[in-house]
Amino acid sequence: MLSILKGIWVILSHTFRRRVTVQYPDVQPIMPPRYRGRIVLTRDPSGAERCVACYLCSAVCPVECIALQAAEDEHGRRYPEFFRINFSRCIFCGFCEDACPTYAIQLTPDFEMGEYVRQNLVYEKEHLLISGPGKYPGYDFYRMAGVAIGGKDKGEAENEEPPVDVRSLMP
């Protein structure tokens, strides 16, 4: 008898406690910014694609769900000709983000990726590419790299001397 009353008391007391259940999807949960959800490709501050198609994300991917092909524009800037992530295989480990030398590939807090058809989980570059820099607003890989691209000649990157004049004998 006493135990029944005790039980009813516990249940009733919960009426006045804070609720744990989130009324998803009516209420959207707020995920931490470093949550590992949907993968995006970002752009650098100038708006150009950050991905230089170095293949490191695809190499590090433990389920091998990233495939891409490198290409180069007429000014020497590298970009992926296609970039495909098979999210039906992705385990959201975030290794690709760790491996990315240009902050191009980033995992976002968006986790709503459910599909009825598995084929729809194959994302191409147009599905992955966003219009902003994501979590790292300031970084531009080509400002640091030694290669010349359109709009940035040799010696114009950060911390670079102007190109050597090979014909000069001055010390």
Binding site: I66, I85, N86, V122
Partner: peptide
């Protein structure tokens, strides 16, 4: 070798 589960996924 990479991309085994993505190459033909399209």
């Amino acid at each position: 070798s990479s991309g085994r589960t993505a190459i033909d996924a399209k």
